[in-house]
């Protein structure tokens, strides 16, 4: 039985440490970019699904279809579809773009749901009042509805983002150098699997646990009455 303790100094040599630290950053940046773009897209989708703003039922229906479709495809399959779709379109894009797009697609679907739930959590009489004062739908959304909806939107969005940070591990399948790929590479170089995968499990834990704590904190914080 290999002793992890004996292997530790050899594993965390200068080269490997830099390699792992870069991968850690890569995972963070990939998650951040994907979730950020996805959140913005989800916003647009949620607005398109809001009856008070978009009165065209066809467009509302399309937005719903988008959400339902991307929500129901496993990340790995989505990754493959995006990868080959880019290839099909002839775009010569980086693997980072492919992975980030996949995350953004997933994020757009769940954040559209969260943001819609947030918008719907605000009493409809707020829309009535804004409407009769001649505020347009988008103005009412920005000035009246969203300020009251953030507390419902943000905590679950952060929890879902944790899910996507975890999903970035699947992007190792197309060879982007995030943590899981790096662990596999180190494992192939002869380091023990327990150490390779164990150490990145801890690194994922650090990211996800902090994010979850932050989400819990925000939930309490935003629930306070005077937070506008």
């Amino acid at each position: 039985m290999p002793s992890i303790l004996e292997e530790l100094p050899r594993f965390f040599n200068y080269y490997n440490s830099i390699f792992l630290a870069k991968a850690f950053l890569y995972t963070l940046v990939l998650s951040f970019v994907g979730c950020g773009v996805g959140f913005l897209a989800g916003f647009v989708l949620a607005i398109l699904r809001t009856r008070r703003i978009n009165r065209w039922a066809g467009l509302r229906w399309l937005a719903t279809l988008w959400v339902e479709v991307w929500r129901r495809i496993p990340f790995l399959v989505k990754l493959m579809v995006v990868f080959f779709a880019f290839q099909f379109a002839g775009g010569n894009v980086s693997m980072f773009t492919v992975a980030a797009t996949t995350i953004a697609l997933s994020a757009s679907a769940f954040s559209a749901e969260n943001i819609r739930a947030g918008i719907e959590s605000v009493h409809p009489n707020q829309w009535d009042a804004a409407e009769t004062m001649n505020m347009g739908g988008l103005t009412a959304l920005r000035r009246v509805i969203l300020p009251q909806a953030w507390s419902v939107i943000i905590p679950p969005s952060m929890t879902y983002s944790v899910g996507l940070v975890k999903s970035t591990s699947i992007a190792s399948q197309i060879g982007v150098l995030e943590m899981t790929s790096v662990a596999k590479i180190l494992n192939q170089k002869g380091f023990s699997a327990a150490l390779c995968f164990g150490s990145i499990l801890l690194m994922y834990f650090v990211i996800c646990y902090s994010l979850n704590r932050l989400a819990a904190y925000m939930e309490v914080r935003l629930a306070l009455p005077r937070n506008r």
């Binding site: 290999p2 591990s169 699947i170 327990a194 994922y204 646990y209 979850n212």
Partner: peptide, 24 residues
Amino acid sequence: VVFVLNTPLLVQIFFIYFALPDYG
């Protein structure tokens, strides 16, 4: 529970599949 909730399923399975054999 907390450890599993905060780590990726894929890496958990990698660990089970590749690391556990070292321990028999």
